[in-house]
Computed example of a mutant assay.
Amino acid sequence: MNLRVPYFDLTAQTRTIRPELDVAIGRNLDRGSFCLGPDVVDFEQSFARYCDSAHAVGFNSGTSALHIALLLLNVGPGDEVITTPMSFVATCWAITYAGAKPVFVDVDDATCNLDPARIEAAITPRTKAVMPVHLYGQPFDLGAISEICARRNLALVEDAAQAHGATYAGRKVGSFGAVAGFSFYPGKNLGACGEAGALVTRDPALAARARALREHGSTVRYYHDEIGFNYRMEGIQGAVLGVKLKHLDAWTARRREIAARYTQLLTGTPLKLPRVVPRGEGVFHLYVVRHPRRDELKKFMEANGVGTALHYPLPIHLQKCYASLGYQAGDFPLAEAIGRDCLSLPIYPEMTDEQVDIAAGVISRFFQ
């Protein structure tokens, strides 16, 4: 489909930095350091500083980073981890891979993030950790959730897969919990040329163990102290991410400009527009609006040359893969309503103001 406003355009970003990428990838090819290596180390150090943290450990995906994050905290069989039903399913994969049970709590209707007021009712003697998601790039209520975790002696794991550079109370997300996981899937605000992820922590012992676990449980080659995984970041991805990280703040500023423009143009329409938690500053990985006629609006926009997407139409508790947990439709009505009504509008740094105006104009025509 030839769209005037595509939902997303990765090639536009690549074109703006292609010479830098060519140099970085060429250097990696010349080095021949394709699994971990100096490009990954350089990126890890830069990303740790960017996140206001002490250590970053590169992985082959954000899912792997979250899995290892839970293992570092000794989450395992018999344990429960409280999380949100409104996220990409990989949040729960990490809990399941660790052998623990996901326990869902409904979300806040305004921000779509895990509702702190509902957490304590879900805590049992088996609860080991709370793993909320900075959904759509908007910080969850770190003040309230951190306080609950500290008071109830629970580990806080931040799923920051969508929130590179977001802040809460002036501090970068990923630096609040015991461990945080980030994704560098190509469509993320900071995206690799393939799959990649990172784990961030202030604890040097956790970082050291994470490095061993991602490399077959080994600190000395061919000697394995515990069961490990092949979760290494590729050297080329480290090189790419090192280039892109230098541009991330400028890209984030542009995302915020686009989001502000959407909000200005769409205020007064029947759409429910994004809201950010107090004291938080989001990075607008997604700009998600809501309306009961979502499906009609989506078809109308695409028929008029504007791409859209759905994040996420079926909450995790209703996915067939988690039927064994016993949840039913109606258990988390706010998450379910968001799934029915949500629509992601185009947002990426290379969008022009004209394209934003076109998308907003199509929406206005739909409601007229």
Rank of each mutant, 00 (worst) to 15 (best):
S183V: 08
P139R: 10
F104T: 10
V89G: 04
K320T: 09
K244L: 09
A250N: 02
G282C: 02
F332K: 05
S183D: 01
G26C: 02
L156M: 06
R152W: 06
V40F: 06
S218H: 10
A155M: 03
P19H: 09
L156W: 10
P333A: 05
P349L: 04
A69D: 00
A54G: 14
M86S: 14
I123T: 12
V40N: 13
D203E: 02
S218P: 03
D9I: 14
A121Q: 15
L266D: 02
P292A: 06
G143R: 12
K128D: 02
N304T: 14
A163D: 01
A239R: 02
G170F: 02
T91N: 15
A205T: 11
R294Q: 15
M86C: 09
R290D: 07
Q264W: 04
P132R: 09
L266K: 10
F184K: 00
S364G: 03
V23C: 04
F140E: 00
N60G: 12
I347F: 05
L154M: 02
L3P: 05
A303P: 13
L273A: 01
M1S: 15
C321I: 15
A303R: 14
Y168N: 01
K172M: 15
R209P: 08
K101V: 14
G76T: 08
T167K: 15
A253P: 12
V107S: 11
F284G: 01
F182S: 07
P313S: 04
M131S: 04
F8Q: 10
R340P: 06
L190D: 04
R340M: 07
L325R: 12
L10H: 07
A212P: 00
G282F: 00
V356L: 07
V105F: 01
A129F: 12
A24W: 07
F300Q: 00
E44H: 02
A329T: 14
A166F: 07
C112Y: 03
G177M: 07
M86D: 09
T201A: 05
A198I: 10
A198G: 06
D249R: 10
A56K: 00
G99F: 01
